[in-house]
Design a protein around this nucleic acid. Structure first.
Lengths: 242, 242
DNA sequence: CGAGCCGTTGAGGGGATTCAAGCTCAGTGG
DNA sequence: CCACTGAGCTTGAATCCCCTCAACGGCTCG
């Protein structure tokens, strides 16, 4: 929480205060904007909370807004012509999603909340307008795009390569980066793991069971789990040594 | 080839003429610029030709330039900690590559020519400078980024999913989009197919052989081949029907 | 002409899928 | 209160696809 002069607090719009105090602001898209700019834009930004497994937007629909993830995890799904869906990427706190909208393009994936998520919905027009004034915004936007591209290519090279066990270990590494304050990670359902790593639910289940026996993971209630970071690293190294 | 006033031809720099006449210009990054702008920038753009299997840039090196592909195919490779490389994306004519450089970031992949390629090397500083004047350039850049992101996510959902035969068929569909004037496609070596689809050279070879028997593909000299588009579609549908 | 690279094919084994059954657990209604 | 149900997870057994190991042929090049 930043210090805001008391005499201003009343005058400012609640959402502007929320933006100024936002804990992910420094790492998020509007981190580059100053408070004055925030004052101008606050009315257009909506804060929203979605339950787990709620769709943020659908593939193919006209994109009217981008979103900043303030809390939680979002996955991107595609369904191929054969009809089975594949999760191609996940995004978390501080990430910008739905950037296609800025190009007047339909969303290219279906975005679904993995956990309960808190989002900031930013209308396309607002970003356009801010990008006119030659701020640092275009650069900031390109940076987001590059991060998304990086994540997607890493998904190919890490999560779509090798044995089922290895791919699952890689997934756990990524999920551990989004662990909550008590060190618990969000653990996907078995069929979701399947959609992420291109394996069947049975294989996913067997691999999870194996990792439990190996002490790498310990299941917790409500789709969460606790990881033993050291054991995870050891298991990965052992895989790579093969 | 566009018409250029004769009285100007002599006065213009050869590279400026080349840019103005470039056949991919309309679809490339600088398509948004007018001739006057081209006149200003020509001296900084270098045209270069690279032989097949030549590295365009290495992962991790400081990026000083972006490249537009005028002719040929480029692949992006990553090597995971285990040591095996994976091809995560390919780019062709009209595509912009190495955009990380614009963000003062090291290149995130190794880029290698698949075929002989003709590139335009565009210094980072030049793009920065052009992006200052609030042209259509930032938008054009974001569009490139989105296209790259799209291609990468499609790679996950299409080329990293399903049986070896299905993945290979999907690869052939993509390669056929880059067929040359005589309808021949570039066919990767078997180990390259392996790196693209996460399979062994033996499996790649067996699958190619099977597709030859099925009349989908016909090998031609020097790593090229001819596809039967109808048979390819039929084979894909048959896969999906399973 | 031998060396080496690339592609092909075969045999055998292993890992993932498929098919199937049983389990836990939350929600529902008798 | 407890049987009933269905969704999600787990485990087993059989099958199959792909990997591994191996041998061989065509080709280029020193």
């Amino acid at each position: 929480m930043q210090a805001i002069p008391i005499y201003r607090q009343e005058a400012r719009h609640p959402q502007a205060q929320a933006c100024a105090a936002c804990e992910v602001r420094s790492s998020a898209l509007f981190g580059a904007l100053d408070e004055e700019a925030l004052d101008r834009i606050h009315t257009h930004i909506a804060s929203l909370t979605l339950a787990a497994d709620t769709t943020v937007y659908d593939r193919g629909t006209a994109g009217l807004a981008v979103f900043t993830i303030r809390e939680g995890l979002v996955r991107f799904e595609r369904t191929n012509e054969r009809g089975d869906r594949r999760i191609v990427r996940i995004a978390g706190r501080g990430d910008l999603i739905g950037q296609e909208a800025l190009l007047q393009r339909p969303y290219s994936d279906e975005a679904v909340a993995c956990t309960e998520v808190q989002l900031c919905r930013i209308p396309r027009a607002l970003v356009d307008q801010l990008a006119q004034g030659r701020d640092a915004l275009p650069r900031e936007l390109m940076l987001r795009w590059q991060m998304a591209l990086d994540a997607s290519e890493a998904w190919v090279s890490d999560l779509s390569t090798g044995s089922a066990r290895r791919r699952l270990l890689q997934l756990l590494v990524r999920l551990s980066a989004h662990a909550d304050s008590s060190g618990l990670i969000w653990l996907p359902r078995r069929d979701e793991i399947g959609a992420m790593l291109d394996m069947t639910v049975e294989t996913a289940s067997r691999q999870i069971s194996a990792l439990r026996r190996d002490g790498v993971i310990e299941l917790a209630p409500s789709r969460s789990a606790r990881l033993d970071a050291a054991a995870l690293q050891r298991a990965l190294s052992a895989e790579d040594a093969t």
